[in-house]
Amino acid sequence: MAKEGLFSKKNQKLLSTPLNGNNPVTVQVLGICSALAVTVQLKPAVVMTLSVMAVLAFANVIISLLRNTIPSRIRIIVQLVVVAALVILVDQILKAFVYDVSKQLSVFVGLIITNCIIMGRLEAFALGNKPWPAFLDGVGNAAGYGLVLIIVSFFRELLGSGSLWGYKVIPESWYVANGGFYENNGMMILPPMALITVGAIIWFQRWKNRDLIEK
């Protein structure tokens, strides 16, 4: 068998399909709860994305390396221990180096453990594939998850707080309070609007990509 290139067509697909055609959030509808919780502003959404990416990529690689040794009866427990250990590491590192962000994410970092995307990828992919494809699959799926998070938080922060990445983008003089015509939409800050935004993304995606529509 000819040796497969690191970025062969097949491997590239592992990275790209989760971004659109097989997106974990909009197509598989996994990891919705955290997508609602951390998308009020861009910054926590990006940090959450990076944290999930680190956890998922490493967990995939570790499980893939161990795949031939894991006793099948306790494989879920082994996966859980690996994920939990990585999440605690990420949490400790955030606490040490980006304290304010870690305070903002608070409980949600710990809840990465329960993010269905992670267990789903470990069970469905890492247990049956070599480390490198598993790594790409992890990065790809986390990126697909992050893409949705970032789109949602972009609109929520822009329309809900009038800022992006914490910086004001709507001029102060536009606001009704200063004699203007504009007011932030307080609804955008609340979780229901995150769900509706995710719904709008799913709608848009299916409108562009008819193959995704269930018959």
Partner: peptide
């Protein structure tokens, strides 16, 4: 995990 917690402690305490 204990190694990580031990080594990161000074940074966290500072924060």
């Amino acid at each position: 995990l204990s190694a990580a917690a031990f080594n990161l402690k000074p940074y966290q305490k500072r924060n």
